[in-house]
């Protein structure tokens, strides 16, 4: 039997879930500042909603869904659309972290594939769960994963990765 989720303090919630939310936001935006903005937005929404959760899985799924929506809202905002041109121009000068080829290959995937890849490989959600979170069918999730793997194989070239 699943344990009913208790009300937890802001500090505890942030400790438990801020990295998860931040990582997903980063996977979506590929930008530290946007990831921080999204994370802040998600946690403030949480505190304002005063939502009751059936269990910790329910709370986690809610936070992930709100993170995805917050990322979509930010991407659609007028400010972000305007800023996109400047960011592209400045991209050459930004120092990227030292990571493996996998990290940089995933970076090159379209946004919707990046989010799906992150939820599947990092958060280890099933195809069905990802479908519910993103509001799409299981077939669409499978198709995104298939396309993403194809693109990654191509980008990673000679390296023989097991997906």
């Amino acid at each position: 039997m699943k344990k009913k989720a208790k009300d937890i303090s802001a500090e505890k919630l942030v400790d438990m879930y801020s990295d998860m939310v931040y990582r997903l936001a980063y996977a979506r935006s590929q930008n530290v500042h946007d990831a921080q903005d999204i994370t802040q937005d998600v946690f403030l929404k949480y505190i304002r909603s005063e939502k009751k959760f059936n269990d910790e899985e329910h709370r986690k799924a809610w936070l992930i869904r709100v993170t995805v929506n917050a990322g979509n809202s930010l991407a659609k905002s007028a400010w972000n659309r305007h800023r996109a041109d400047i960011s592209e121009a400045e991209a050459e000068t930004v120092e990227l972290p030292e990571k493996s080829g996998v990290y940089y290959a995933v970076r090159e995937l379209p946004e919707k594939y990046r989010v799906t890849v992150h939820l599947f490989y990092y958060e280890e959600f099933s195809v069905k769960e990802i479908g519910r979170i993103l509001g799409i069918g299981e077939t669409a999730v499978k198709s995104r994963l298939f396309r993403a793997r194809e693109m990654l194989r191509e980008m990673l070239g000679g390296e023989n990765f097991e997906f």
Binding site: T39, K99, S100, Y103, V106, F161
Partner: peptide, 17 residues
Amino acid sequence: MNFKESYKKDYEDIKTD
């Protein structure tokens, strides 16, 4: 090489301070 392991390792360091 395993994609999942490599991806997880890269993203472990991406966290809030």
